[in-house]
Design a protein around this nucleic acid. Structure first.
Lengths: 345, 345
DNA sequence: TTGAAAGCGCTACCAG
DNA sequence: CTGGTAGCGCTTTCAA
């Protein structure tokens, strides 16, 4: 229950209401700032009488007092902020869910997750911007952070830097998520199904190279030393481009295609079908991500299912690293891939 | 926790892992902290000799000095942080793009956008958590913020609070995005196409009520006073549920369905087609969001295209509000909807 | 042109 | 049990 006296609209007492501080609370409650701090932080070491506690609490509520995080962490010398760069491109449901799990798990460990919008800033510059916030840990998806960036962050007091990407970075913990395995699974699967002339869709959209390049490389790796060939097929995410590719299909002489993900699979399948190309007879199609839409296509889409690390796991890693920053950086292989065969391959 | 004593200035470049401050830079450069601040902030008011500037810059680089954002904003009395809660559910490409545009636009205006992970915390509690960061502005999608929350934020110094949701909140600016219009467009369209017994899919997934309820209400509103009926059809996002609904379709006696969005449309269309229900003859289908997948379905999916406000626009609103916090909160109607008719209706 | 010092809001010692 | 107070890192007067 709030008991704020309504200020008459005719004469507001202060045009610029200043933000209440703990000193204001102390004054109103008739105690010292120290006492306010003790009460509001439930300090166990000191015992404050119940009437005093009430007075402080009431005063805080009445003023709408909210502690100043910057002042607090300045004083404390550290924060419990875990910083992640906000993804710069539309991100699928898998990754969203991963982030949410992670946030929830870290919140349970009493960390505060903050996604920092770093649009377009590059590497060291970004690292410096992040370092200004003095986060206790930094999680960086992708491969935008180099050893220098890691160093900047650690010198700024980050007790853990974790990269989520294809390769480990000097000085940082790593959750190795090399999408190589995705392409590898797809390639091996298509080979097993007797396909030998395999196309690989590479999205033209910027920002996706970080995933598409390793996926392509994985297909290549899976087929190295066999008689199969791999053909790179750049494709923009629009119908016209897909139709043009489909029109060329028979000339390309391919018998299978790994489409980068399920959405591109849908795009290409539709174009191929409109062109009269039979799936899987003339073109085996394999997507990735195991989205629901794959099950809704006809023929049903074969796909590569990704096993992402669960958020709790990563949260645990972060917490351990924060508690023992001296420990050698761990590198976990954290991306599994398995083919879900349906009707398109 | 181990406290490492400060190494005396006389000691050689010690292995102290403590974070360098501007005082360290000053010491190394042989100047005062004031000079360091002037140099590193390119203060125009004072003129520092070029040799001094060099010394300061070199010292800063050598130490890997990064200013402490908390200390700076504490001193300054304000920050340029714009805070948004991180969305708690998988978010489509439309919204992602909107966020990215917004971040870029605000970055150009020299604001720092931060998405704060508030998983599960409710209303006032969330507002208080945000207020601790003393953001200069807060953008809140959805309808999770009440007048009390707005008040908390403003008392904590937020110069602008903007809600992006169905209705304006007392004291806050509003970008009115009432999804009502989406349902309204769909309903009116189906009525125009001669449909009279109209089903509306309502996703069972939690977190989507904020959108699904207004969309349903919009259909109802569009058909009020006509001889058409509206039937609510709860549906979970899985094939089994869709199949069960499709099996009941003919018993339901409906002739059209608005599916909440394109993804549910795809799910339902597939189930209806598997059941032998002809589209659009026996069931006209209209989705929403105008995703590419709609064009890939057969029959091609009619959909409601959403006109979201562009990020630049919102960034401008935020900036104006920050510069003139006294101005009366504006409320912009910011969601347009138009039907894209294809083959399914 | 540079330096000394105050103080932003907060917490944690140490006295009383 | 409660109050005084130092000081976290930074910017910004005011003096020299």
């Amino acid at each position: 229950m709030v008991q704020i006296p309504k200020t008459p609209a005719s004469a507001p007492p202060a045009p610029t209401r200043s933000v209440p501080t703990s000193a204001d609370v102390a004054r109103l409650a008739g105690v010292s700032r120290a006492t306010v701090s003790y009460v509001l932080n439930n300090a166990g070491a000191v015992r404050i009488s119940e009437p005093t506690r009430r007075r402080v609490r009431d005063a805080a509520r009445e003023l709408g007092y909210v502690p100043h995080a910057a002042a607090r962490s300045l004083r404390a010398g550290h924060s419990r902020t875990v910083l992640m760069p906000a993804p710069a491109f539309p991100v699928g449901p898998l990754y969203s869910q991963f982030i949410n799990e992670l946030q929830a798990a870290l919140a349970r460990l009493d960390y505060t997750v903050v996604q920092y919008g770093t649009s377009g800033v590059h590497d060291d510059e970004a690292a410096r911007a992040w370092a200004e916030l003095r986060p206790v840990a930094v999680l960086v998806p992708g491969s935008g952070l180099g050893p220098r960036g890691v160093d900047v962050l650690k010198r700024a007091g980050a007790r853990a830097v974790v990269t989520l990407g294809p390769e480990a970075v000097e000085g940082a913990h790593a959750l190795l998520m090399d999408h190589d395995v995705v392409g590898h699974s797809a390639g091996a699967h298509l080979f097993d199904r007797g396909r030998r002339r395999i196309g690989v869709i590479v999205p033209r959209e910027p920002g996706l190279e970080a995933f598409s390049a390793p996926r392509l490389a994985g297909v290549r790796a899976a087929l190295r030393g066999t008689d199969a060939t791999v053909t790179e097929l750049p494709l923009a995410a629009d119908e016209g481009a897909a139709a043009r590719l489909a029109a060329r299909w028979r000339d390309l002489g391919l018998d299978a295609v790994f489409t980068y993900n399920d959405e591109y699979a849908m795009l290409l399948m539709r174009a191929l079908q409109d062109e009269g190309v039979r799936i899987p007879e003339e073109a085996a199609v394999v997507g990735a991500d195991n989205l629901m839409l794959g099950r809704l296509l006809r023929p049903r889409l074969s796909t590569v299912h990704l096993d992402l690390p669960c958020g709790r796991e990563l949260a645990g890693l972060v917490d351990r690293a924060v508690r023992d920053p001296a420990a050698a950086p761990e590198a976990h292989k954290a991306l599994g891939a398995s083919v879900v065969r349906r009707e398109s391959s």
